[in-house]
């Protein structure tokens, strides 16, 4: 089989362009125009000087999730599992329980969203049949020093509704009873360089290693 004939590489440039110099000067002129404009009118910049100036998000901005309450003060959520099912990041963990005194029968004993995993797609809001979860807080500063504090739990997300906006870490420190498991105040719960779970010990401790 014959090799394909060597093709002359064509740059597609005209003679004038192939000298580069003229085109170069054109480019330099363009960039210089920007510089001069920007020096004399610094308000042209669209940059938001973030920690000092904060952008206010639109109504439709998807921020941190909050859980809504019914008029009687209980969470609207009935643990139907639509949101963990639709969640593409698999960041929602709900443990359902039965409330014998409530007509809704089912309620979330635990409702955790791992904000480290969340991709803020808003599918959970779309999927909810009870309008129990919304992302309309417009909170976009979600950060913490530990992985545990990045888990927003039921109590925290319910409290976000009151316009209360402490970082989860602060909230958990103030309400240690409502902090997620493993959240330990100031120190990282898992020392750096340690494996997350001691698999051998963990399996022995929790029976078959997969306790419910």
């Amino acid at each position: 089989m014959a090799l394909p004939a060597a093709r002359k590489m064509s740059s597609g440039m005209s003679a004038g362009e192939s000298i580069y110099l003229v085109e170069m000067l054109k480019g330099l002129a363009l960039t210089m125009t920007h510089i001069i404009k920007n020096i004399f009118d610094q308000d042209r910049f669209r940059t938001v000087e973030y920690p000092d100036v904060r952008k206010s998000m639109t109504e439709r901005y998807r921020g941190a999730h909050r859980l809504l309450l019914r008029p009687d003060g209980k969470v609207k959520c009935v643990a139907c599992m639509c949101c963990p099912t639709i969640c593409p990041a698999k960041c929602i963990t709900i443990i359902a329980g039965e409330d014998p005194n409530d007509a809704a029968e089912k309620f979330p004993v635990e409702f955790d969203i791992d904000m480290l995993r969340c991709i803020f797609c808003g599918f959970c809001v779309e999927a909810c049949p009870k309008d129990a979860i919304r992302m309309d807080t417009r909170i976009y500063e979600i950060n913490a020093y530990t992985r545990q504090a990045m888990v927003h739990n039921k109590t925290y997300m319910v409290n976000l509704m009151d316009g209360l906006k402490p970082p989860a870490e602060e909230f958990y420190r103030a309400n240690p009873d409502n902090a997620p498991a493993g959240f330990a105040g100031d120190e990282p719960a898992v020392p750096v360089g340690q494996p997350f779970v001691n698999l051998a010990a963990g399996a022995e401790a929790s029976g078959a290693g997969r306790a419910r």
Partner: peptide, 13 residues
């Protein structure tokens, strides 16, 4: 700063 101004942003500040 030059890069920033050419690219319409404030640059280091």
């Amino acid at each position: 700063k030059g890069a920033a101004y050419i690219q319409d942003r404030p640059g280091p500040n």
